[in-house]
Write a protein that binds this DNA or RNA. Structure first.
Ligand SMILES: [Mn+2]
Ligand SMILES: [Mn+2]
Ligand SMILES: [Mn+2]
Ligand SMILES: [Mn+2]
Lengths: 219, 219
DNA sequence: TTATAAAATTAAGCATGCTTAAATATATTT
DNA sequence: AAATATATTTAAGCATGCTTAATTTTATAA
């Protein structure tokens, strides 16, 4: 019923659904999942048939409560694995996402609950994402904004990062830019939308690509 | 190239190949893997085409050194996962096999090496099976025989159990029959091939089905 | 040795999850 | 409001890994 592929589609739809800035369109999902638009249309029919999304041709799709429940469960497995791999098995910050991307589809309820327990029921994964609880609810997490939207000369703390590109994570690690680092935007260049941030008395230049994948919180 | 299905076939072939009492025939594999004979013939062609087994129609199949290497690698992942799940995540003796059956196909080299290291490079899994080393070699392990073939009134130690049926493992657990238990066969009944074994001053009757899945070592 | 039984293979077909190319619907310009 | 561009869906087809039914090969018995 819920294969690896279907789980990934549901997660992707959830992702767009929970964004206020974007929606789960066919093209968005195709791009996100690296498949053709035709594959999305195809799967939309199937997911709709089994009651996991609502779908009207040309109008887009939405998770049903059943579909959302599955999506959150997969996300829970993903994020618990990430934290476990990092804290217990010492995998790198940049490696855990790809590994979890596989494991999330092949982990029983009993196993994931043991991992949850072993980690003492954590609220956040290594990239600052909230971990859905066994009951399906997300823990409370703070309002954040993209670093690319942060204002000049105010104090922020780096609290979350998009983990889908391991290169980016490695890059940040090399810069010493780990979660919970304090920073201030000192300059913004409009010609390439790069910025200069001050971190621990060091000025670092970050491209648009980088700053729009980092989330910060005002302090 | 090497999918979940192919990995399972290679493991199954390895299994029969390493048995002196049986061989990797089409029917054996079909029965072991719970698929039709036709599926085995089909896959034999494919595995042969990609150089993982040698195969002559009606004559049977054998792993090439390339195929055996993959098989041993999957077995390594399987057994390391089993031990890790039991020792670290406290899954039950009867649960770890089914869980590992999935995880073995979705674990990177980096991760399995970390698990190996975390467990301090163990030689045996929870069911007494030797764990292939990173270099592809099996650790030395003692000569054993099936409990069903053990002689009356000699002292044996229970060292290995077939882990493919979780019901059997639960059954043994309930009897207190864990690995490294000493035992003596007191009676053998020919009419149903059941036996009576003496364990810790208790006499226990075991069916043929049970005794031919337990391996013992003479002491 | 020939007949029969058992084992293995081939043939045809199905589900899943993709692809590219063609068709159609929706959005944007003029 | 048409014309054009963009987004989406449909059509046809492919790979993988199965199935059942038919056929062929090999093994066993008479
Ligand atoms: Mn992730
Ligand atoms: Mn993450
Ligand atoms: Mn096992
Ligand atoms: Mn085992």
């Amino acid at each position: 019923m819920s294969t690896t592929s279907k789980e990934n589609y549901l997660k992707a739809i959830y992702n767009y659904q929970s964004l206020e800035s974007d929606t789960a369109t066919t093209s968005n999902l195709a791009n996100y999942l690296n498949v053709s638009n035709a594959a999305i249309s195809d799967m939309a029919k199937k997911l709709s048939d089994i009651g996991l999304i609502t779908y009207e041709k040309y109008k887009g799709m939405e998770l049903t409560s059943k579909g959302e429940k599955i999506a959150l469960n997969v996300i829970r497995r993903h994020r618990l694995w990430e934290l476990f791999l990092m804290k217990v098995l010492e995998l790198k910050w940049s490696e855990v996402h790809d590994e979890a991307e596989q494991l999330e589809h092949h982990t029983s309820e009993a196993l994931i609950d043991q991992i949850d327990k072993f980690l003492n029921f954590p609220d956040f994964d290594p990239h600052g994402h909230p971990i859905p609880k066994k009951n399906g609810l997300l823990p409370k997490y703070p309002k954040t904004l993209l670093l690319s939207n942060a204002e000049l000369n105010r104090n922020y703390v780096f609290v979350r990062v998009n983990d889908r590109e391991s290169e980016l994570i490695s890059f940040l690690t090399n810069l010493g830019l780990i979660l919970n680092t304090n920073l201030t935007v000192k300059e913004k260049f409009s010609f390439d939308e790069s910025i200069v941030v001050r971190i621990n008395d060091r000025n670092i230049s970050l491209s648009k690509k980088v700053s729009e994948n980092m989330y910060v919180q005002l302090i």
